[in-house]
């Protein structure tokens, strides 16, 4: 290629790049405004006393972080958040996988089944929360009514008892979110070439072997992304808990998300709320880094 042709090509590429950059610039600016700016602001707030209404800042060093870390409620709130996130993640995956696998089979009423399983996801969280409040109501709720038919002694105040309240809200949250996982897994399952399972069957593999040796490994990357999304969503969500128990009884269902919301918008302590947010961010990031390192080491071992 002559020098002149190279020059023409370079100029054309530059022009194309220029136009491309101009096209993406609104998105880049929007992302910078919507993601980077708030993140930096939260970081700054966490080291300051924030005075409303103009958000005047006074640097106070690690005071907010010290207050958060020495709070007597922190261990309970962290424990609740971890349980809320991971137990609901497990239940959502089990329900999501089961429903998705059922939807892989052709049967009469499949459309109806799909509609019914999607219903919880389409319901606004405030409606779902009140529905579950009614189900768990110890005086008039359907759950206690059914339990009393079998064993009256087992009936309890599901949301009013410190030992059952968290599990009760976790079940409601899992119920609300599993259809999303089901949809995603259905999409993933449809992406697995049928030849793989057919070949495995010809080789004599049974359904369980096909599931664990073909289906799961094929969905691995896909499930990892879903897990990450669900963990992030679990750590941040609190609307259902807020409506069902408000974090009570006592602090039995109080989570980090709810705590941050309360600190910022009810106590007007944006500095402390930001510190709590940063703490949560750091915890999640440590979790992901440890997980990623583990995965990388595993992959190397496989390759080696």
């Amino acid at each position: 290629m002559s020098n002149r042709s190279k020059k023409v090509l370079t100029t054309r590429r530059k022009r194309e790049w220029g136009a491309g950059l101009l096209f993406v610039s609104p998105s880049v600016i929007a992302m910078a405004c919507m993601v980077a700016y708030p993140l930096v602001l939260v970081l700054i707030y966490s080291f300051c006393k924030v005075a409303l209404p103009k958000f005047d800042l006074k640097y106070i060093g690690f005071e907010n972080i010290r207050k958060v870390l020495t709070s007597s409620q922190l261990p309970i709130v962290l424990k609740n958040t971890i349980l809320w996130t991971f137990v609901s993640l497990f239940i959502r995956f089990v329900l999501g996988f089961a429903s998705a696998l059922i939807l892989q089979v052709d049967f009469k009423g499949k459309t109806l089944f799909r509609i019914i399983t999607l219903l919880p996801w389409t319901m606004p969280s405030i409606v779902a929360a009140n529905l579950w409040r009614w189900i768990y109501n110890p005086d008039t709720g359907i759950l206690n009514f059914l339990v009393k038919q079998i064993n009256p002694a087992a009936a309890t105040n599901w949301l009013g008892n410190s030992s059952t309240a968290l599990m009760a809200v976790i079940i409601s949250y899992s119920w609300m979110g599993f259809p999303y996982l089901m949809l995603m897994i259905v999409a993933g399952l449809q992406g697995i070439p049928k030849e793989y399972t057919e070949a495995a069957r010809i080789d004599g593999a049974n359904s369980i072997q096909v599931f664990f040796r073909i289906t799961l490994p094929q969905l691995k990357g896909f499930l990892l992304i879903l897990t990450l999304l669900e963990i992030i969503s679990g750590f941040n969500s609190f609307d259902l808990i807020f409506t069902m128990t408000g974090g009570g009884p006592g602090v039995a269902t109080e989570t980090v998300g709810l705590n941050i919301y309360r600190m910022a918008f009810q106590n007007y302590d944006f500095g402390k709320a930001s510190s709590m947010g940063i703490l949560l961010l750091v915890l999640v990031m440590i979790g992901f880094v440890v997980y990623s390192l583990g995965q990388r080491r595993k992959a190397r071992r496989w390759q080696g």
Binding site: G160, N161, S162, G248, P249, G250, V251, A252, R262, Q266, N267
Partner: peptide, 17 residues
């Protein structure tokens, strides 16, 4: 904040904790 504290502790007493 006082209201929150009182409510939380009242709930603890109500639940028998």
């Amino acid at each position: 904040q006082i209201q929150l504290i009182v409510t939380e502790e009242l709930q603890n007493a109500l639940s028998g904790s």
